[in-house]
Structure formats: structure tokens, C-alpha cells
Design a protein around this nucleic acid. Structure first.
Lengths: 250, 250
DNA sequence: CGTTTCGTTGAAGAGTGTCAAGGCCAGTGG
DNA sequence: CCACTGGCCTTGACACTCTTCAACGAAACG
């Protein structure tokens, strides 16, 4: 029963949400012990996804949701004529796969941008457990709702912001998410390419590159390929809120 | 107990989902009678919203979801610096308010574009009923998931399409939704202004107007202010799929 | 260590936005 | 009934942002 810290048994894979350091992100607060136990039954297995591989693809039968344990992924949708759009980037503690519920098959591809590990949450079981654990059900609904709200924010960004504003908002968002996970708020590595950032932000990769260079030139940040250090968070905020702060009109 | 078909009692307002002609849109298929009864208890009241009034506003405490019975609404989000983005238009049979679940308060405004009537679905009661009626719970999850998928589509549109493609996709989407409700697929009235269309599509109202004129000139449709008649659905489809079909490259 | 992928930068051009003027329509009040 | 008003829509001219095309440099990978 008690797995030694060496060894690599199935039971070791079978997880302990209760001492997962992501539980504040994944789980509702204040679950009683019996509830946590039900929950741990829920998470059947883990799954590793190598960089470049897909966790699932559009058209795949929907069976499970996935909680990212570690790593980094992107989701993309594709139009009938082959245009691709990155709809989101996912990091530890986030839940992916909810797009699949509606049609019982996935509607987007979700691909690892670095070696990634996820907890597999069989959906049918989740439905069962959720109906008997109100706090979990509630939490699940909130997570879905939060995704809807997040996407509203992306629509605002795509629909009404300029390139510089989009990039600034994007960097601040990443910054904040890293911070919430205990990483540096100001210094991090971009797991995605310029083209992927561009796709997400509705820009071409050249524009992304140029704007990053401009930010660096203006002393807002340092960029070295994928490595970013934010020097002036407030400056970025000012850019998001209608260009440079000094510009009162608009 | 049995309300006469004349009269206008509360019980009459208290609604019968079972013979609502929108039930295919709102409800899961194949509910047994007792389940439908539970469901009818759920829908406490109706609410009328006059043109221009808000069903709810960002910041309002979240208490209920709303099923549109008749009318037309828009949802908008607003950035801290006052930019507004229309995130969706809603018509009969659609569920609105799901943005509010995550933070227990709404994060967008939802405003009637014409006199509208909604069924009020108190959320707490929905959670209760859903946990004991699997089909309903399932359906609810699907509706939320569908909203996520819809928004992915909007992100694709905003992130990677040109003005003409956006407008064509928008018109086809409306067309299809009207058809699903038994209205004409080819002839309808736009309930929103050019500015609202533009906001939704990430374009300025002038661009919307120009593109509509161009479509009319190309024989794809007739436009008369808010009245639209689609003449060439296939032509519009061709535009959505990478500009004019004849244009093989790109 | 070559090959490939990714990133940067420049110049030219297309697509939208901006500004401005005028037309159309519904509602209002004389 | 008609003139007036205000909101909405259309159209033109011009400016500007972003894309496109192209070349090159830098890092990653086998």
C-alpha cells in the first residue's frame, strides 16, 4: 500500500490528489476526506505526452477530461479550408478537453509544446461522482464557466486591440499564470513559437517578432529568443489600456 | 389546479416546457414524464425585457440562467479602458448567463435588441434537479460545452479571416439559426446595427456597410437597411472558404 | 557539422480604419 | 399633414497598421 519513493508501480501512478501540489487549482476548496477519496477514484490514470504529440485531435471520440500536471500544451481549431487558429495555451493545473462534451467528440487538437503529463479524468465517472459531491459538481461548472469567460476576453482582444496591445496583454496573462504557480512573474520561457503566439493573437509571426523587438527597445522587457524578462509591468499594463498611458484620448 | 386556457393566472405563467415549441432546442431528447415535471418546477418564472433594456449587466450577482423564449439579445464585454466587444447574439431557444457561474456574478452585459421574453432558471435549483436527472445534467453540460466550441469558432473568425469572410460567415450562421427555428433561411431582418455587427466581427461599422454593399453588387444578396435576402448561399460559402473559390492559392 | 526550424529585419503593398459629408427612415410635435 | 430631429446607414478620400515577400542570422537536432 505505501509505495516507496523509489519504485514505479501502478498504484504510484494511481495518484493522490490529496497531496498534489496543484490541488488549489484543480479542486474545490474544503472537501471533506470521504469526498476526496471519491475524487481520487475518479482520476484513473496519468498519461504522458511528448513534445509535439497530441493529447487528442479533432474528431477523436470524447472520453475524458485532462488535468495538466506538468508541461505545456496548445489547443488549435482548424477551419474547413485549412486555416488554423490557436485557441489557448494550457499549463499545470488547468483542465482541457471540455470542447468534447458537446458532440461527444473533440473539436480541437490539443498538442504538447513540451513533455507533458496529465491526469486522465474519465468523463462518465466524473458525471457520476459530481452528482453525489455537490462541491465537485459546482467546481466543475465553475471551471467550464471560467473557460467561457476567458474566451470572452480573447474575443475582446482579437476584436478590438492593436498588435502591441495584444502582445502586452498576452505577456501579462502569462506572467500572472506563472506567478500563480509559484514561478517568476517577470522572467520566463515562452514554450511556443512566434507563429503560435501570432496565431493565438491573430497576428503574423513577423508582427509578433517586430513588436517584441519594439518592446525591448522601449525598455519594457528583454527578449532572447524564447526567454523573456519583463522589466516594466506597469508599462505593459499602460499599453493594454489604450496605448502608452500618456495618450489620454481615444 | 387546471388552468383554463383563458385567464392569465400565475400558474399560466409558470409554464409548460412540455408543450413549449422550443423544447427541441432547450431540452434533452427523450425525457420521461416525471423528469419533465421536475424540470417544469425548475423554470420558476418568465421575464420580459424591453428593447434596449438589460437582462443582466456585468457585476450583477449571478442567480439564474435564462432560456430565450422569443426575441433577440446581444452580449457584450467591456475592457477596463472602455472598449466594448459584442461576444454573441442570442435568439429563441438559446441559453444565456453561463458566464456568471464562475465568479457568481456576471461578467458581461446582455441586452435585448428587440422586445424579448425569457424563462428564468434559478441556478441553485438547476444544480439540484440536474444531479437527480442525469439526462438533464448531461444536456446542461453539453450546452456549456457547445458554447465553448462556438467561441472557438469565433476566435478562428476573428483571428484569421478577412472582412468579407467574416461577414459571409456571420450571415450564413444567422441564416442557419433562423432556419433551425422555422424561419426563412434566405430572408431575414438584422436585429442589430452595423456597429454591433462590426463589434462582433472585429470590424468598423463602415467596413461592414461597405462589404454588404459589395456583396449586393456581386449579386450574392440584397440589402435594404436591416432587411437581408440571400441570393447565393453557395457564393457566400465560397467566400468563407478562402475567397471566391476560383482563387485556388493561398 | 550540416540541416532544419525558428527568429529578425527591411521594403513594398493590401486591407481596414479614420474622418467627413450626405442620405434615409422613424418618431415627434407643431 | 409636414417639417424637424436624431439615429442609422452609405460612400469617398486618405492615413496607417499589419501583412507579404525576401534575405539573412541564430539556435536546435540528429
Amino acid at each position: 500500500m505505501n509505495a516507496p519513493s523509489t519504485g514505479f508501480s501502478i498504484s504510484h501512478l494511481k495518484v493522490a490528489c490529496s497531496n498534489c501540489n496543484l490541488r488549489e487549482l484543480c479542486l474545490p476548496l474544503g472537501l471533506a476526506l470521504p469526498e476526496i477519496e471519491k475524487l481520487e477514484e475518479l482520476v484513473a490514470t496519468r498519461r504522458k505526452v511528448k513534445r509535439g504529440e497530441a493529447l487528442f485531435r479533432a474528431g477523436d471520440r470524447f472520453e475524458s477530461l485532462y488535468a495538466v500536471r506538468l508541461g505545456f500544451l496548445k489547443s488549435t481549431v482548424m477551419s474547413s479550408d485549412g486555416r488554423e487558429q490557436v485557441t489557448g495555451f494550457h499549463m499545470a493545473g488547468e483542465l482541457v478537453g471540455m470542447d468534447g462534451i458537446s458532440a461527444e467528440q473533440h473539436s480541437c487538437d490539443t498538442v504538447a509544446l513540451e513533455d507533458t503529463e496529465v491526469c486522465v479524468i474519465p468523463y462518465e465517472r466524473l458525471e457520476d461522482v459530481a452528482s453525489s459531491v455537490p462541491a465537485l459538481r459546482n467546481h466543475f461548472h465553475k471551471v467550464m464557466s471560467r473557460e467561457i469567460v476567458r474566451e470572452h476576453g480573447v474575443m475582446l482582444l482579437l476584436g478590438s486591440m492593436h498588435a502591441e496591445e495584444r502582445l502586452a496583454a498576452f505577456l501579462l496573462n502569462l506572467s500572472q499564470r506563472f506567478e500563480a504557480r509559484g514561478y517568476s512573474r517577470t522572467e520566463f520561457v515562452l514554450r511556443m513559437t512566434r507563429a503560435e503566439i501570432g496565431s493565438f493573437l491573430g497576428l503574423k509571426l513577423e508582427t509578433v517578432s517586430r513588436v517584441l523587438s519594439r518592446f525591448a527597445q522601449d525598455g519594457l522587457l528583454e527578449v532572447n529568443q524564447k526567454h523573456v524578462r519583463i522589466l516594466d509591468t506597469e508599462g505593459l499594463r499602460a499599453i493594454v489600456s489604450g496605448h502608452g498611458a500618456a495618450c489620454g484620448n481615444n
